[in-house]
Amino acid sequence: MLTPRQDYNRRARRRSIFIAAASTAAAISLLLLLIPLSPGWAAVQKSFFNAEIFAKSFPVLLRAFVLDVAIFLWCAPLIALWGLAIALCRDARAPALYPLRLFGALYTDVFRGVPVILIVYLIGFGVPGLGLPRPWNSPYIWGSLALILTYSAYVAEIFRSGIDSVHASQRSAAASLGLSDWHVMRDVVLPQAVRRVAPANMNMLIALQKDVALLSFIGPVEILRQAGVYKSLYANFTPYVAAAVIFLVVTIPATRFADRMLARQQKQRS
């Protein structure tokens, strides 16, 4: 048996779901009606939404996407480690470690100040240009390195904000027990910091997943480059749309997940 309040809430909820569904349906039908009426629609449909070309390119693009995923999978942990190392450098207090601190600051300034694509070009073309022997001339290695270097600068700043957010009383409590600075950091500060910035880092991962496509500019035939090949082959942009769909299938759930994580954390803290 429902109380009057529960009954009222349930009816109110049903009502708002109904209104939301109806207005969404109306908006979508309007778009579907209006867009085909625009003068260039026929041409756009042919060159961007060609079902036949979509069907033909999709499986191959999906296979090329495996390479994106692979690059992502080996870059992500290295970014986390290197980003953390940079964050710790920037946090080093001892005077003897001042060079590390300086390095950390310079590093984050430089790599956050230059567009990713430029770093990809500079390292991806520059280093193999030194005439290194195989496999050290591979664009996979140097392209990945470019991503790792750039992303770890951002991730380092995220970690640092997390480290700063751990209250000083936690540090004194740990120090008062006789723990060394390193153990205070490793056992008390870092675990709390890393947890706190997990949602922000999740967003970096999503951005990275997309930026892997930048490596297409220096050689690896991943999804974006494969789509480019098909575009030229069929003289049609549909492969790009297919590639976008594949990205969205991965990034939308990931984004939702990150948002949920953030919301949960905010709820916990309030």
Binding site: S169, Q170, S172, A173, A174, S176, L177, G178, L179, S180, H183, D187, V188, P191, Q192, R195
Partner: peptide
């Protein structure tokens, strides 16, 4: 010299027993 703070300052990411064991383990 042990100190106990007015605001407890337990480590929130560890269980009570881990809070207690941390320093003897590390030190």
């Amino acid at each position: 010299i042990g100190i106990v703070f007015q605001s407890f300052n337990l480590f929130p990411h560890m269980t009570a027993v881990e809070n207690v064991m941390l320093a003897p383990r590390r030190v």
